[in-house]
């Protein structure tokens, strides 16, 4: 598929915006009502799906739309988690929900500022170079948090309990992660459905031409990078509260960075529903179908990448669209 075809497909989707809003609202209502009938295990799977989907959509804003594949987005997840955890430990006097809210705001703000600081230099690099430098940044962030005692990265840090009285923790975090994922989807959708989306896609297809056409490539890339980092940290800080105790190793995980990419790839890169489908498929596959083959989890993910890249480079969404097009003919 050439770049132009893909742009065309994209505009068909965004053109049908009312239908997508309806689908989104229905999906949200179903998800919100689901805990009534789900078993605890199924709720855990649901939380995993929201977590992966939120991250994958956040990653996709930069990776899918602008074509800048970050291999180190877990940096923002981890920094967000640690900001939230550290701050919440200083705020014991106030009510738990306020602590939760303030920690989220602080984490998102800190990640936004950090991302804005590094955005200009790292976004000068292209393709593989950008990918590997992001991998390096995640590595450095993890090592700094691990080695300075003040962050308590190596010994771990207890995140205060913020669940309101009378509510089951998994219920609370089910909704918190659902909300975080929904925010990722809505913010990304709002951004890419307009001018910004076209600018980012033009950058992805040909950055030099985009620049020549008068698109302020630098500004759009930085915008996508910063927003993507903030959304990632949002999911990260909610995740930190949901697991209650974090160490460097628990949040700066290469497989998180990897999963963001894999979900996007499986579902269909450069779309919004794609990463969500990808998260559902990957989570169900690794946590339900292959739950017993834990030691081969990475290998499964690796094999999936190879298969998808070789057989279905535009993901499940691409396969569905291809099939639909064939039926119509």
């Amino acid at each position: 598929m050439t770049g132009l075809d893909r742009l065309d497909l994209r505009s068909k989707i965004t053109g049908n915006i009312g239908a997508w809003i309806a689908v989104g609202v229905i999906a949200l209502v179903v998800m919100a009502a689901a805990p009534a009938i789900l078993t605890p295990f199924q709720m855990r799977v649901g939380m995993s799906i929201f977590f992966s989907a939120g991250l994958a959509v956040a990653w996709g804003l930069l990776g899918g739309y602008a074509g800048y594949y970050s291999f180190g987005h877990t940096a923002f997840l981890g920094i967000g988690a640690f900001t939230g955890a550290l701050l919440s430990n200083y705020l014991h006097a106030v009510s738990p929900l306020v602590v939760f809210g303030l920690s989220i705001l602080a984490a998102v703000a800190v990640c936004g500022v950090l991302a804005a600081l590094i955005a200009y230099p790292v976004l000068r690099l292209r393709h593989s170079y950008f990918a590997i430098v992001m991998l390096g940044i995640a590595y450095v962030a993890a090592e700094v948090i691990n080695n300075f005692d003040w962050f308590q990265g190596s010994i771990g840090i207890v995140v205060p309990q913020v669940v309101p009285r009378g509510m089951r923790p998994e219920m609370f975090f089910y909704y918190a992660l659902l909300a975080a994922a929904a925010i990722c989807v809505v913010v990304t959708a709002l951004l890419v459905s307009g001018r910004v989306g076209y600018a980012l896609m033009t950058i992805r297809e040909d950055e030099d031409t985009a620049k020549m056409l008068g698109i302020a490539t630098e500004r759009y890339k930085i915008l996508a990078f910063v927003v993507s980092a903030m959304l990632t940290s949002l999911v990260g800080v909610v995740y930190a509260f949901s697991i209650g105790f974090i160490t460097t190793g628990a949040v700066f995980r290469t497989d998180f960075s990897l999963n963001m990419i894999v979900c996007s790839l499986i579902g269909g890169i450069g779309t919004i529903v794609g990463p969500v489908f990808g998260a559902i498929i990957l989570t169900v596959l690794t946590q339900v179908v292959l739950a017993d083959a834990l030691s081969f989890r990475l290998a499964t993910t690796g094999a999936l990448i190879v298969i998808i890249v070789l057989l279905a480079p535009s993901g499940v969404l691409g396969l569905v669209r291809g099939a639909a097009a064939r039926i119509r003919q």
């Binding site: 990475l298 890249v309 070789l310 480079p313």
Partner: peptide, 19 residues
Amino acid sequence: GGLVASLLVTFGVSLIIHD
């Protein structure tokens, strides 16, 4: 898939060898 795809596939293979 071009060079970016090769980045992903070699990454995937490294995970398989690792496991």
